[in-house]
Computed example of a mutant assay.
Amino acid sequence: MVPPTHPRTTTRPSPRQSRISPEREAQMYAAVIDMLRETGYDALSMEAIATRVRWSKATLYRRFSGKQELVAMALRHQSPLRTDTYDTGSLAGDLHAMVDARSDQRLHADAALLRGVFRALHTDEELGDALRAVDHDELGALVSRAVRRGELAEHHPAIPHLPHLFVSALVAHPLIEGGPANRDFLHRYVDAVILSALGTEAPPHEA
């Protein structure tokens, strides 16, 4: 969930090139996220992950250089900013659908997970490298649809900053308001901040 800067080059096959089924891959990423929530990043190990998902360590290491890359891919796969399943017919509708797709409880858990990852970044430089090497264009499908519909200019200067806006809302809310962000807050945030930044007004029925 950190915007890419200078992706690393690697000769190892990507997870998408693996023979592991998409279903098993998704289950593995979900298990990694669960373990991050349960034990934190520092206590996480490739051996523990292999045991949890019932894979051999050799299989994990054939696909990932270490826990840093595996965690980065799991965060990418489980990102709250993924919008490829939403198509309501409007930019505002898609953004609000993204908020509605997660319960308040899940939003609270996402925020706690992000704070834990940010703490780990201070002590593990390889984790930062892995996060920056992963494609984090979670909002790409949503933006592309808005451009095709004529709602958004293709090169609008705010587009690259959309992930920053969403992540900062989740992380900063507890510091400012004393508690985690919920869906009601995020709906208002979409209308007042995200859509305004993109030069698009929220329709009256969504305000």
Rank of each mutant, 00 (worst) to 15 (best):
S18L: 00
L95D: 14
V2H: 00
H122M: 15
T10H: 06
H164N: 04
L186F: 11
E201A: 13
E69Y: 09
G116A: 05
L91M: 08
T10A: 03
R82L: 14
L162Q: 12
L95H: 15
D110P: 02
I20W: 01
A50I: 11
D110R: 00
D100Y: 15
E126C: 09
I194P: 09
V147S: 02
A112E: 10
G150Q: 15
E154I: 02
V2Q: 00
D184V: 09
I20V: 11
V171D: 05
E125G: 11
L195C: 04
V171Q: 05
L114C: 05
E138C: 02
E125F: 11
I176C: 10
S45W: 10
D87V: 08
S18N: 02
T200R: 10
P163E: 08
E206F: 01
L175W: 10
L95M: 15
G89H: 10
Q68Y: 07
L170R: 03
A101K: 04
A181G: 05
H108E: 02
T10K: 04
I20H: 01
A146N: 13
R119V: 14
V53H: 08
T5A: 08
T10S: 04
I33D: 00
P22F: 01
V117Y: 03
I176D: 09
T123L: 15
D110A: 05
P80F: 00
A43E: 14
G178H: 10
A197R: 01
E206P: 00
E154C: 03
I33L: 02
A26F: 13
H164S: 02
